[in-house]
Design a binder for these strands. Structure first.
Lengths: 127, 127
DNA sequence: TTGCGTGCAAAGGTTTTGCATGGCA
DNA sequence: TGCCATGCAAAACCTTTGCACGCAA
């Protein structure tokens, strides 16, 4: 798993693997098995409370809690840097514009929140 | 693996799993091991000839041949229907617009071709 | 000979599943 | 009792890796 570096616009605290969730719960004195976490996550993903992301082969899936915002026309999306591996959280009002375009011209009802944009982040472009 | 249904705008023939590639080669009398295919694909992905997509947990990765178009500012992208599972291929000039926006406002150099837009396709919205 | 692609089998990870148990209505 | 969440261990899967072999330069 790529090490999450902290930095501007990065929200590593909002995406967790099953292993991280388990570690956390064990640490706070609520031990739980991974099987249970997977089963819970499956339920949450189904009801839209949590989003699931597959980023790289061999890595664990990441889960993001969206809770009450689940029905919102998502105003944030994710960018994954192909160089440093960071998962970057971005807010962008233009998403609605794209959403509208996809709907009108392609008939596609886009779920922006679940989409991950791959590319190169600002920091890695300088390096 | 979700069954690829044929239909408008769907290009199932352009995305293949390692198993599909192997089956094909075996069928045409060129047996090959999966290990070799994975190794080849890794090379192709590295040099940009092929793109790799992870769609669902437990599914195999999909590989798409892009060949000579690899340096093009990709004019097509993929939409995955969360209902029927189809991977839909779309052409869209507005992508350059999005690309420009991401670069100017977020400093992010977007690799459009690798990005998969999740949502609901036109057919599933009717159903 | 050297380098490289390949096959086979084993290993490594993640995720899922089967079964038994315990809590709660 | 019946239902449901849970834990544990095993299974299932995809992907990677180690090693040996064979071909071509």
């Amino acid at each position: 798993m790529p090490v999450e570096q902290s930095g501007p616009k990065t929200h590593p605290e909002s995406h967790h693997t099953v292993a991280q969730i388990r570690d956390h719960l064990v640490r706070v004195g609520k031990p739980i098995s991974t099987a249970t976490i997977y089963r819970q996550m499956e339920r949450f993903v189904t009801d839209g409370t949590v989003r699931k992301y597959l980023l790289e082969t061999g890595d664990s899936a990441c889960y993001e809690y969206v809770g009450a915002n689940k029905h919102e026309c998502a105003s944030h999306f994710h960018c994954k840097c192909e160089k440093c591996g960071r998962l970057i959280h971005m807010d962008c009002d233009e998403l609605r514009e794209i959403q509208r375009h996809l709907k009108e011209h392609h008939g596609f009802l886009w779920n922006a929140g679940r989409t991950v944009f791959y590319g190169i982040c600002d920091q890695c472009q300088l390096a």
